[in-house]
Each structure stands twice: as C-alpha cells, then as structure tokens.
Design a protein around this nucleic acid. Sequence first.
RNA 1: GGAGAGGUGGCAGAGCGGUUCAAUGCACCGGUCUUGAAAACCGGCAAGGGUUUAUAGCCCUUCGAGGGUUCGAAUCCCUCCCUCUCCGCCA
Length: 425
Amino acid sequence: MIDPKLLRQSTAEVARNLARRGHAFDATAYLALEERRKSLQVDTEHLQSERNSRSKAIGQAKAKGEDVAPLLAAVADLGDRLASRQADLQALQSRLRDIELNLPNLLSDDVPDGRDATANVEVRRWGEPPAFAFEPRDHIALGESLGLLDFDAASKISGARFTVLHGALARLQRALISFMLDTHTDEHGYQEAYVPYLVHDLALEGTGQLPKFAADLFRTDSGTPFYLIPTAEVPLTNLARDVIFEADQLPLRYTAHTPCFRSEAGSYGQDTRGMIRQHQFEKVELVQVVAADASAAALEELTSHAEKILQRLELPYRVVALCAGDIGFGAAKTYDLEVWLPGQERYREISSCSNCTDFQARRMQARRRNPQSGKPELIHTLNGSGVAAGRALIAVLENYQQADGDVRIPAVLQPYMGGAKTLQG
RNA sequence: GGAGAGGUGGCAGAGCGGUUCAAUGCACCGGUCUUGAAAACCGGCAAGGGUUUAUAGCCCUUCGAGGGUUCGAAUCCCUCCCUCUCCGCCA
C-alpha cells in the first residue's frame, strides 16, 4: 500500500509514478472522495467527543444523586446523528481503502522505462552458453527418454500443468533444494524456516496478492477458506506482521523451501509443454526484513545470493532489471535472474528478486523502533527466489546433457546424490 | 470429534455498567543519592487514526474479532476465532 498521506498530499506526483507502469490513477476522483472523507471524519469524531463528555456528565450527576432526566433529553438524538455519520464514514473509508489496496507500489527512480518485458535492461551476464557438438534436446525429451519424467502419469492424476518425477530425477530436485538451503544458511546468513502452505486471506493481503489477484490463487472450500501459497514469500514475510522490532534485531533473513501453487489463470497456451509453468512447483525463497535506509543495498546483496546458486551450479545466466511496465505489483524495483536453456536457446526466468520497500510493511504493520526517536517506523521487505527448484532442474538437464542422452550431475550436487556423477548413476 | 477453563498494555495481574478517560507490581528509560554500582526515593513509559508545517498540542479508536443493548460497555447479550487441560483419534 502506498502511504495514504502521500497519496492525498502529493497526488499528482504519485499518479505520475504509477503512470510509468501504465497504471492510470484517477487523481481527481480520489481527491474528491478524500475531501468528503476528511469533513465526514472530523464531523464524526466531533460527535463522538460530544457523546463522551455528555455521558460522563450524566454519570457524575447520577453519582451526586441529581436528576439526570434533562441531561438525557439533551442527548436524545445524538446517538442517531452519530450512527448515520459513522455509517457514511465507514462506507467512504472502505471505498478509499479498496482503491488504495488495488494500487501498485511506487517505482524506484532507477527503474528503466518501458511497457513490457522487451524493454527490460540486461545488467550483466555470467558464464557462457555451452557449445554442443550435437543438437541439444529440451528437458522434456531428455527426461522422458531417461524414463524419469512422466507428464502422462501426472495428467492422469491431476490434469495439465503437473509433473511426476521418478528416481534419480526426483532425487536431483531434492539435491538442488538441499544444496540451496545449505548455501543460504551456512554462507549467506539466512535462517531456515518451515512454514504453513495454507494461509489466511489476511496474510495474502499483507504481501499484496489479495485483493487484486485472487484469480491466480487456489482456495480451499473449507469452512473458513484457506489459500495455497503461491510462494513462500507469503508466510515468510508475514512473520513480521504486527511486530515492532528493536533496531538490533534487523536485518532479518529467512529462507524456506516450499511447494508453490498457482492457478496460472490467463496463461493458457503459454509453456503448456514441459515443466516450465506448473500449478505446483518447488522453490527456495529468500526474504529479508530491513530498516528503510538499508533496503537498496539489501536488494543487491539478496540478488547476489541467488546468483551464487547458479554460479555454483555452473549454469550460465544473466541479470535483468525489470522495466516499469513489467515490474510486479508490490515491488519498487526488481532484478530477474534468467538461466540459459539450450533446449529453447534462450534465457528464462529462474529467480525474481524484489525490493518491496514499505509497501507490504504498511499492509501488515511491520515496524521497527527507531533508535534515535524511539518511535515505530515501517520497515522494508525484500524477497527473491534462491532459486526456483523446478526450473533449476530443467536448466541442469538441458545444460548438462551429453551426446548419448545421459546427463552429468553438477559437482556441487554430487554429494547430495550419493556421489553419482551422472543421472543414470 | 467430546468435555472443561481462559483470552486485559513488554510480562504478571486487578477491574465485571459511569468514581479505572485500565489499578498495582515487574521490566525498561531518566533523575536524586553514591567514588562507582546496588538499594531506596522521585518522575516517565502502548499502538493506530484524524487535525496540523510538526515525531508540539488537541481529538477519536483499540481490553481476542465482529455484531447488539445503553446517554455511557473491558464489564451485559449474540456469533466467530485463538490458547490451555483432559478424553478419543491420528503422522
């Protein structure tokens, strides 16, 4: 959520920032509502104050044994007047909040202009796409010919956009996850967490998936509905909900492996083949909770932590700064990591690292105590995949394939694979 | 799933319709005293929102959540949530 004070005081500026994303914000309509809210709220609180003081006087008069009938008469219509004002105010406030909850975060000044992914800016590359002496195959052909990847079985059980992994390939995914978690906890200072995969709507509102993106989520139809997490960012970031941290408790760094569930509504026809875009996939997530003035540096650092995984796996990748039109709802600035996929002969997203500034913190009242003023102030939250395990699995298959159809196992994963050097072992 | 108990400020804990615009204690912060510390004493000590140049004042809201009764609700009524104990079931 954007600071409502900023929204009403610097409306034009905010609108200009949002316009960079292609988001049209009707500043005039908003300000009109806001003006009514102001007078209505001042009015309502006035009446509340009057009711309080009159009720108090009645109490005091009663204690002295005086006749309170005239006092009661004087206050007779106050309740009704107050109730109607309060109802109007509440309706207006919920309209304003609805608008505010549907506004994306303000973009950081250094986000490049552009309407879509084609305008994203490559920041750097690492590694060289491997040169094959044969025609490289994609992960589908590789996995199926090895007998380790089974889309038919998955569709029998659950339909499209699911995968069954067998044997060494299932283990390879587990190896990737363990390797990532170990690296982040042992070397990057993250604390591993195990978190719920089913969450309340409040948690999703806190990170920004709700109310706007309900269609992307799976919801249970149990009594009080749960949502399946679309990313571990949701439970991890919500660890800071309603907390006032002491300055020395920050930064907080959490990592977790979880499955992620996405309805992929609206992506029909995209990546329907293979395991690029699934309803269920595994991911290792990184989340940081930091003081406001530390978030810009933290984004660079968090991104480097995700990069480190690809470097250790010796997978060629590039870092891309997302442009204004391609950046996510809650992010002020985002770097995507794109890994080279020989089967597609292109770089594909494998990690997305974002600085959400105070956007999520405001929604979930995540604060720290300012050591100078002693006052609570909003913290900043960051998240990034470190990295998506399913896509890392694809990248390993395609980049490590050999002429005979076998797949070598990256050196850092071999200890997790019982020492095996190839997928066939 | 069954039965019971309970949810009050950082913690403990009182209050059960107006004298509590939440007592008291602990913790914490400042001060006095002291060579220093402790003790003792004095003072301070929630969050959100509104108004405002203001993190100054003033006002509103918040005693698990939501609704209701009332001039007035932490206190009465209804619904829900959560925690704990015992029983049952279960990885």
